[in-house]
């Protein structure tokens, strides 16, 4: 692989993370009236009632971020802490650290993100391809307007609808949580069943909505491909219908599809977080919602930093894999 390509992509990855880190630093430091300190003081005042001890956090906060020092010193301290993987304590769940909470929530989000992405991609691409395929059933072709609606509406609105009908009205599936309350997760069949049952509704909400996006992208690409000369040739050679469809048409348009997915990854992640909130699903989104409710600024920033990092890393890896699987993309494209 062309080293210049890798270097450029890596630079973009580092720059993306650096921009977010810096923007968040500036936002928190330049916000009027230092909300973090105000929150810490409010918690301290409250501590008498709850029995919690917030004093150490405020002290640690002042000390760690050198709040009395000039801005550039604060910035360096902040960066050093980040590089050490230290995002501070959760202000409302002391002594749990932000990293503790996020690593507990992350597997839930990543799990559901992976499963929904793969399924929506497969299903959406197939539907989109069939819609564009001139010789498929009219009924299939008629689903195009449905795709347009599902592609346009945010994930979590579907979540609400599914939650009501399947969870509340017909009571088929659980409406909340990752597993039944009180259930102990272990390596057994029962756990798998619990996880599947609870993930089914949030996952379906995401799949329904993103199937539309994949389907429309696939359809547009297939329409272009249908006019290519090699398609005409395949037809003229008398190849089987199915072979033309699967090998000549689909294979050639599947790869460009991943590009459009990479472009929308950031907004897909944002949508997924909102779905988690609807279903009280114990991932990053719920963590974020609770942190917002409690004004736990360290947690909000931690979630933002780590999610941005994860998305940027995923895009970087995709950029590296992409030229390997699609030889049409040259490494040295300027």
């Amino acid at each position: 692989m062309n080293p210049a390509y890798i270097v450029r992509r890596f630079a973009l990855f580092v720059l993306t993370v650096a921009v977010v880190v810096t923007v968040i630093f500036l936002l928190t430091r330049l916000a009027p009236g230092d909300p973090i300190e105000a929150k810490a003081l409010a918690l301290e005042a409250q501590a008498g009632n709850t029995g919690g001890d917030i004093g150490p956090i405020v002290e640690a906060y002042r000390e760690k971020f050198q709040l009395d020092g000039p801005l550039h010193i604060q910035y360096v301290t902040y960066l050093t802490n980040l590089l050490k993987g230290d995002l501070g304590y959760s202000m409302t769940n002391y002594p749990a650290t932000v990293v503790d909470k996020i690593s507990a929530a992350m597997p839930w989000t990543i799990g559901i993100a992976l499963v929904t992405t793969v399924l929506a991609m497969l299903f959406g691409s197939l539907v989109g391809a069939l819609i564009a395929w001139r010789r498929s059933f009219v009924l299939v072709q008629a689903t195009l307007p449905v795709l347009m609606v599902t592609a346009a509406v945010p994930f979590f609105l579907f979540g609400l609808v599914l939650q009501f009908f399947l969870g509340v009205h017909w009571k088929v599936l659980p409406t909340a949580f990752g597993v039944d309350p009180g259930f102990l997760v272990g390596w057994n069949i029962e756990t798998v069943w619990q996880l599947t049952k609870h993930a089914l509704l949030p996952a379906t909400a995401v799949i329904v909505a993103s199937t539309g996006l994949w389907g429309l992208g696939m359809r547009a690409m297939m329409v272009t491909t249908a006019g290519e000369d090699y398609m005409l040739l395949a037809d003229a050679k008398g190849l089987k219908e199915r072979r033309i469809f699967l090998v000549y048409a689909i294979r050639n348009v599947l790869l460009p599809q991943t590009t459009s997915f990479a472009l929308s990854l950031a907004s897909v992640v944002g949508g997924l977080l909102l779905v988690e909130i609807v279903f009280n699903y114990p991932g990053i989104g719920l963590l974020l919602r609770n942190a917002i409710g409690e004004s736990d600024y360290f947690m909000i920033q931690g979630v933002t930093l780590i999610t941005t990092f994860a998305v940027a890393l995923a895009l970087f890896i995709m950029d590296l894999i992409y030229p390997l699987i699609d030889p049409r993309i040259s490494y040295s494209r300027s």
Binding site: L12, L15, T16, V19, V20, V23, I24, L27, T28, A31, P32, G33, P35, A38, L263, L265, A266, S267, V269, G270, L273, L288, I292, S295, Y297, I300, Q301, V303, T304, T307, T308, V311, A312, L315
Partner: peptide, 24 residues
């Protein structure tokens, strides 16, 4: 173009959340 690529890779909703949550 680099700036555009960077902005596209950032989940805007999250940064907006940080911004909005800091406004008292």
């Amino acid at each position: 173009r680099t700036i555009t690529d960077i902005a596209m890779a950032i989940p805007g909703l999250l940064v907006l959340i940080v911004l909005a949550s800091l406004r008292q």
